[in-house]
């Protein structure tokens, strides 16, 4: 039998409350419909889906930012609907958002990393140690004295990750954390999440609409209309290109090329998912 999951989502349903009056609740569609998902400690999970598919809504249930209308979510066995446990849940499952500017509070990089620790009243020498380690883990130690507005978008996301790491979480959720970055920074942040998973054994939930960012994950789930419609390893998921297209996901050209070469009779394994892997297989 499996060890108990870090996050256990049990048949949850959720509908966003309507802000404008005059419409009945019946008109607003369910953002999540009877979703169940177990995330194991140390897992690297990618949640894919187009805009409005429900992937961010699902992610926000994992650290009690949203509470399901029915069903329940357990984090380390703690129920997210229990207000008394929410602080512990959020310390365990940290979250990085799309817009880096919305997550930075302090006027100097190292103070920003220290923020949540200081708020919790930890002793100064412990804060200093944790801040140091967090900055090292995301390679921003050399930027420590800079004001955050001098950082590039990618550096700001690293800073946001450091702020979460300082709290020593077991899991980090990156909710479209790369979508406002340029392509190089996007790749760096994806590589960083992968590295944190490998080196520190952190559980990573990577929410994205970009197929190429899911290639390094151990498991992929794809959302559509508030449901999980596909689930598997990247190598099984990426082979059904037509289905992915129907789910309004953009197919990266290298993946498309592999699929068409295969159709033309070339033998390429299902592991040919990243540019590097594809090159290796073609050159052989």
């Amino acid at each position: 039998m499996n060890a108990s999951p870090l996050i256990d989502i049990q048949q949850i349903t959720y509908t966003y409350p309507l802000q404008n009056k005059g419409k009945s609740k019946a008109q607003s569609p369910k953002a999540l419909q009877n979703v169940s998902l177990q995330i194991q400690p140390g897992e690297y999970l990618a949640v894919l889906g187009h805009n409005g598919s429900g992937k961010s809504t699902l992610a926000r249930h994992c650290n009690a930012l949203l509470i399901p209308d029915s069903g329940r979510v357990l984090v380390k066995g703690l129920d997210t609907s229990n207000k008394a446990d929410q602080r512990a849940i959020r310390d365990c499952v940290g979250m990085i958002f799309q817009n880096p500017d919305n997550q930075i509070i302090a006027t100097v990089v190292e103070d920003d990393v220290a923020w949540a620790l200081a708020v919790r009243g930890l002793p100064v020498n412990l804060i200093a140690e944790r801040v140091e380690q967090a900055m090292n883990a995301v390679s921003i130690s050399h930027l420590r004295k800079l004001p955050p507005h001098h950082l590039s978008g990618g550096q700001k996301q690293r800073l946001a990750i450091a702020g979460v790491l300082a709290l020593r979480p077991q899991c980090i959720i990156a909710d479209e954390a790369t979508s406002q970055l340029d392509p190089l920074s996007r790749r760096e942040i994806t590589a960083l999440l992968h590295q944190l998973n490998q080196d520190l054994g952190l559980t990573i939930i990577h929410v994205t609409h970009l197929l190429e960012e899911a290639a390094l994950a151990q498991r992929v789930v794809i959302m559509e209309q508030g449901r999980i419609v596909m689930e598997g390893t990247p190598s099984t998921i990426f082979t059904d290109i037509e289905r992915l297209r129907q789910l309004k996901l953009a197919i990266p050209e290298p993946i498309e090329l592999v699929s068409r070469l295969r159709a033309a009779g070339l033998t390429l394994s299902r592991e040919a998912l990243t540019v590097d892997a594809i090159v290796r297989e073609i050159v052989r």
């Binding site: 392509p183 190089l184 790749r187 190429e212 050209e253 290298p254 090329l257 540019v275 590097d276 050159v283």
Partner: peptide, 20 residues
């Protein structure tokens, strides 16, 4: 200049470097 080619060009450039 901190930019990158489209993924397809990148793949082809790497293949070229590998002697294809």
């Amino acid at each position: 200049w901190g930019l990158t080619e489209p993924p397809l060009s990148e793949l082809l450039i790497q293949l070229h470097k590998q002697g294809l």
